[in-house]
């Protein structure tokens, strides 16, 4: 199962990006293989519909949950129809590594 995390940079110690559609990087973590992939968000500077385009883009990569700080109002119906789970994690200081560790610990528990 793949999870996407919105990130401000392309390293494990980058912070979670609070915006979904306009985030700098998507980090895709596959909990079956344990691999992580850093993808620059192609819609970062899109004027409109960045959230919807990003949602479709991630759906194309078989992501089943997305962890971000906030989701725009237009994204929710799109993600619902794609059956992608939204997780709002907004405690500010968390890095990509912290979140991946949370998911990893969940599996080993």
């Amino acid at each position: 199962m793949k999870s996407a995390i919105t990130s401000k940079g392309n390293s494990p110690d980058s912070r979670l990006d609070n915006r979904f559609g306009h985030c700098s990087y998507f980090v895709i973590f596959d909990n079956e293989t344990g691999s992580t992939e850093y993808i620059p968000n192609p819609y970062k500077d899109a004027e409109e519909q960045a959230g919807i385009m990003s949602a479709k883009y991630l759906a194309g990569r078989n992501v089943s949950k997305i962890i971000s700080g906030e989701f725009g109002i237009k994204v929710k119906p799109v993600l619902d129809s794609l059956k992608i789970q939204m997780i709002i994690f907004n405690s500010g200081e968390n890095t990509v590594d912290d979140i991946i560790n949370l998911i990893k610990n969940k599996i080993t528990k």
Partner: peptide, 10 residues
């Protein structure tokens, strides 16, 4: 526990 919000798709 971790303070996140999530929705339910399944």
């Amino acid at each position: 526990s971790c303070g996140c919000y999530f929705n339910h798709t399944n």
